[in-house]
Design a binder for these strands. Sequence first.
DNA 1: CTGTTAGCGCATTCAT
DNA 2: ATGAATGCGCTAACAG
Lengths: 328, 328
Amino acid sequence: MATIHEVAREAGVSSATVSRVLTGSAQVRAETKARVMAAVERLGYRPNLVGRNLRKQETHMILVFLGTIVNSFFAKVIKGMEDVAEKNGYHILICTTYGERERELSYLGMLVNRLVDGALFLTTALTAEDINRLGESYPIVQCNEYVEGARVPFVSIDNELAGYAATRHLIQSGRRAIVHMTADAASSTSAARLHGYRRALADSGIPFDPALVLTGNYGYRNASRIMSAFLETGRQVDGLFAVSDRMAAGAAAACRLAGRRVPEDVAVVGFDNVDISYMVEPAITTISQSQYEMGATGMGLLLDRIAGRPVPQSVTIPHKLIVRQSAP
Amino acid sequence: MATIHEVAREAGVSSATVSRVLTGSAQVRAETKARVMAAVERLGYRPNLVGRNLRKQETHMILVFLGTIVNSFFAKVIKGMEDVAEKNGYHILICTTYGERERELSYLGMLVNRLVDGALFLTTALTAEDINRLGESYPIVQCNEYVEGARVPFVSIDNELAGYAATRHLIQSGRRAIVHMTADAASSTSAARLHGYRRALADSGIPFDPALVLTGNYGYRNASRIMSAFLETGRQVDGLFAVSDRMAAGAAAACRLAGRRVPEDVAVVGFDNVDISYMVEPAITTISQSQYEMGATGMGLLLDRIAGRPVPQSVTIPHKLIVRQSAP
DNA sequence: CTGTTAGCGCATTCAT
DNA sequence: ATGAATGCGCTAACAG
């Protein structure tokens, strides 16, 4: 592998001149430049970015923390991140953490060890303390989820309002006994959606019944099992709002299995508008977020932070209700 | 940020000694080691891996090329890769290429520029020529998909045999007019499955009808549209084998929309055993691959190659038929 | 416009 | 067992 010095020798110039030609960091006479380029070509030279990174004390790489690839919700978020990163000469590096704090800390070593210039959290098992400690020394931004008490910028939709809208939609179609399927109490998004659910009930004079709040883990099968168990208790239910489309789909399947028609007997609203929401029968009414925009905005905040530009504490992006057959 | 020299000064030793303690590359007196560790602790020292990488001419990072995160099939493959990588002190870096050759070439710069030690392709838009040129200079392994004519190691299931098994299953339940939904003719997996389909037909004396081979793009909606169009032609069909579960689900939905019962009128077999295969109604009979094993094996091959150990040209891993309601 | 010099942070000779 | 010196490949500061 050729080095910059070999190119310099081949072109009859100094390595500094080669560097100037390649980075465009200074004016070089056209004729010299041509000689250098010819030498680069002849030797098939490619700069060693590790050397450059060491010298410049930056890597132009961004670490993205993802819980798991299974969730297609994040695909578009990441696309948004990538596009913005790319446009600014950065590459992203996705790491999957499976919700394990240890794994996250291991990958964070890359930040601490200067292998990446910043980190973007989509989900995290870190505590606010962890994040604040790191956030003081390194550029960090949270996307979608957000850890209570963490003082690093974040971008998300207004989950409380979205939860309100979802519940309100059910109420307006005449539902009164509305089950809420939530997940992980530590999740900021779930917590906010639950608040929205409660506020919508309150606004319509429907008393809140804790027994109607079912807690699962975002998964299809899990939701299905939980809903079946709930139905067996014989409790009243004519509506359901779940914090994920997978849960909504699982719960709807459980309803049908128990002989309840969807949406006639139980109307179902999900969240995220992922592909399964229209692949199941009936298609799921859901809340759509602009995932691309969320990712793009998050990356924008991070790059601003890296460049030392001022960054807002949080950015809220829009969402909307998508009405399908499961809750017309 | 403390450097190794500051630690050395703090501990009253040379930087070489600090390096020895930290890397364990040579014996150091216990007492000296303790002094160094104490200094590391006091200063909160973390080695700059960029410096180390430059010095050692390796980064212990592996680039994984993924078409898109949307496909949950790859989630477990990647988990397998990660576990093996981690066990050997490597990190993986996932990049999404969206099937764009330009994007791939851009990311391959990281390989050429020594930012990563090797690359693992899950899908690629590169030509065999591209791959062979790179494969001569850099460690590359293909996983799942494989480019015809590429002389780099690859790991996959026996797709021809799997296609045969899927089709055979339909034939054994009495189906004779079996549609095959395939995708991307350039895909090695699709091509092999088509071969398996044809061989199964031949073995049962069913003539091959090119009109029964429908080409889509792996997607649900696309498959649904294609199948609807096919049904409108009024052609006979009592079985369907698709190269992805999403296509199978989409085609099944189209059948029901057209008043055909699944599996009574049309039995459906998919491929990959991804989550949607059991989330739709009826659940899809499919071919299951050990994705984890595929990823783990692929990473194993790559690390062997990097370490200069001998590597087989290809590894075939097992698959099996999962029978569900769509084709009992 | 170009060359010389220096140093990013580290691991590895070669001495001792 | 330890220190001094060297260089991985590159860019930036300073001369000229």
